[in-house]
Amino acid sequence: MARKGRGRLNSLQLLPPEVNHIVSWAAGELQNTNRSQLDIYQEFFDKLNHAKRESRGELEFVIPSFSSFNRYSIGLDEMTREINEAREMAAAIAGTFDAEESDDLTLIAVEAIKSLIFTTVRTKRGKLDTKDTKQLADALRSALTAQNISTTRRQKVEAEYKKALGEVKDAVRKAGVSDETMVEINRRLGIT
């Protein structure tokens, strides 16, 4: 049976919002590998104790144990590694596509999503409730929005390219470059 909701909160999640800055500080220190986790925990513990004393009883909370802090540290490290890995993969993939290829991929993805939606509607006719229909409509709207953004971006890039090309031609003419030389430069650059 699948678990519903987010499950039981850990001791760091149960800390009051008034000490969020201390938790954020600890997360930053854990990301910086200059100090040991034990040193960071000791200072974390001291800061929470100080906040508790300063509140004069207005803040009541249990300071997380070192084992809870360790689990938090491990989870934070795993999440950071996953984010960095995803960022590196996205950068590597993005470097392999130009705007036109990206636009083509968007068109292919949108067509695949539309096809999936229409297939689902056709095969589940009479079995879709309003929630299912809304989800399909949202998916279609998102796909079409992505397609429109991609097309708009491509058109903007093409307009900027044509403008820059015109400015280069004007500058070249003013510099006294012959038409034959300009034709040769364009041929070598693949500009028509």
Rank of each mutant, 00 (worst) to 15 (best):
M1P: 08
M1E: 11
G5N: 08
R6D: 10
L9M: 08
L9I: 07
L9K: 15
S11M: 07
L12W: 03
Q13A: 08
L14M: 14
P16Q: 03
P16E: 08
V19W: 01
N20R: 11
H21Q: 09
V23K: 09
V23P: 01
S24P: 00
W25K: 06
W25S: 10
A27K: 03
G28A: 03
G28E: 00
N34A: 13
N34D: 14
S36I: 05
Q37S: 06
L38D: 13
I40P: 05
I40H: 02
I40C: 00
Q42E: 15
E43N: 07
E43V: 13
H50W: 12
L59H: 02
F61D: 06
V62G: 11
V62Y: 08
I63L: 07
I63S: 04
F66M: 09
S67T: 14
S73I: 04
I74Q: 09
G75P: 00
L76P: 02
L76G: 10
T80W: 01
T80Q: 12
R81F: 09
R81H: 09
R81S: 11
I83C: 07
N84R: 13
N84L: 15
R87Y: 12
M89A: 15
A90R: 13
A92C: 06
A94Y: 06
A94R: 10
A94C: 05
G95V: 06
A99T: 09
E100G: 08
E101T: 13
D103A: 15
D103L: 13
L105N: 09
T106D: 12
V110N: 01
A112V: 12
K114D: 09
K114F: 09
S115C: 08
K127Y: 10
L128H: 02
D129M: 01
D132G: 01
K134G: 08
Q135V: 14
D138N: 13
L140T: 01
R141I: 12
A143P: 02
L144G: 07
S150F: 05
T152C: 03
T152A: 15
R154F: 12
R154T: 09
R154D: 05
E158K: 10
Y161H: 08
A164C: 07
G166L: 05
G166E: 03
E167I: 06
K169W: 00
D170S: 09
D170E: 15
A171F: 04
V172P: 02
R173H: 03
R173I: 07
V177C: 02
S178T: 12
N186P: 00
R188K: 15
L189T: 01
I191A: 04
